[in-house]
Design a protein around this nucleic acid. Sequence first.
DNA 1: TTGCTCCTCACGTCACGTGAGGTGGC
DNA 2: TTGCTCCTCACGTCACGTGAGGTGGC
Lengths: 281, 281
Amino acid sequence: MLSIGEFARRGRVSVRMLRHYDALGLLRPATVNASTGYRAYEARQLVTLNRVVALKDLGFALAEVKSIVEGDLGIAELRGMFRLRRSQLQAGIEAERARLASVDARLRFLESASALAGAEVALKAVPAQRVAQLCGTAVGFEPAAIAPVLGPLFRQLIDTLAAASIPIVGPVLALYEESPDGDALQVRAAMPIGSAHLPDDCPLATAELPPLELAASVLHHGPMDDVMLTLEQLGRWIDASPYRSAGYNREVYLHCGPDRSHWVVELQEPLRPAETATQGA
Amino acid sequence: MLSIGEFARRGRVSVRMLRHYDALGLLRPATVNASTGYRAYEARQLVTLNRVVALKDLGFALAEVKSIVEGDLGIAELRGMFRLRRSQLQAGIEAERARLASVDARLRFLESASALAGAEVALKAVPAQRVAQLCGTAVGFEPAAIAPVLGPLFRQLIDTLAAASIPIVGPVLALYEESPDGDALQVRAAMPIGSAHLPDDCPLATAELPPLELAASVLHHGPMDDVMLTLEQLGRWIDASPYRSAGYNREVYLHCGPDRSHWVVELQEPLRPAETATQGA
DNA sequence: TTGCTCCTCACGTCACGTGAGGTGGC
DNA sequence: TTGCTCCTCACGTCACGTGAGGTGGC
């Protein structure tokens, strides 16, 4: 028989953990002294303790560990628990990898001199353009919600124009508007087509994009997942300028080949002078 | 100005989170109605909210998020935080991968018929053997603590015997004993050498391994990281038998090539009859 | 008046860590 | 008597979720 301290040392766990497992009914001491309350464990209980620790280390909650070690689960239920845990682990690894990629992007950003100066933000005017366009709706405002909407729109737009032999006169654009209920984002994919005429059976709409009298322009390099970093830089530049944002920014896809890390996208944020600013929502 | 409900919907967060961020001083509403306590946010605060959410999603604690968004960190400190987070993420991914491998091993184990029957556990007697041996100390009892100790011992043992041209008469063994203070594990790598004579300058010791009059034997297939599963199976078999464990098991490395998933290791657990059993610690 | 939104406590979550305050055996 | 180990509360951790109980504007 081992005292709780001995048992804890042998099992490489804390005394507090053993008391906790006792309280949960997960691992009860073999005997408890009725007068002193001292717990006593048998050496063979180390096997159970090791199982508990191993299962806990796999990420099971103690309630799950309890049902597993108590052996009142059928083989099918056991398999179910482990399969569930496996899929959770896989999903967790994927999520962590995405986080790591994002942290890496921020580090690259911090280490590039551009992050310090923000020197490439420039004021410009954007002329009106005639475009062929397609619309969609994204459920969120973040890049991960927009990409799966915008991607297919771009593809359909390009394929349709190519099939109709419409000449393209500039890089493809993305434009955003709030949806009426304010909960979603209207996404617009647009391609400049000059004065070209669309065939009657064409599923695309034409539109006249209004000019931007005054816009802040900056180039984003890399995958659009990281565009928030460049947008933050743009936001800081605008905050320090005598202007304020006057709406959602346009995206001009200057270079978008198969390697997403080499994309170049111009962000054009419409501006208005600060004195009359009422922040566009 | 937006009510807390509006702001929460736009920012895709809960109202409770906004109140929490207010309480922490992480994101204060632009104004608070002095009589009603109603919070009011400006639309431009959505930018800050999005930064907060993005940083939180990267796994930063709210206190860290606060110091980052407040901008009172130098570029070096920022870099330090992101580098730390990166290494934490990398370590976390590695740990999750190890867990996943372990869960997979358990699933394979559950799905193999052997897990159900445990039929290959057998009683046997192990004769005495003369061995050359090397000893080491592992800081823990788990496979991950033992492997880095045992591996080099095996390699040194095999290399030394080969250099001395000592013929080997059986598979290599591992034996375990508790260290005197009970906190660590003595690890012994042993190679049967029959009656061969070791040269005087040989760093190896010879020893006579005592026989095991009665042992439970089972084969473990796969990497030793998963040996606990087979040991559990062995433990259940012994529990159901009229015997009890009488010490640490020996490991006989029958097949241990470069592909660890094809290893075959016999586990030999010394037994004594249950009636006289006092569990050897 | 009925809904709806807003408010402030305050408890619960999860697996313990960490004292506080006290007791029992060498 | 002094250490050492053991005991039982009970609060703190972290980022909120979830009521409870109440108020203000349409």
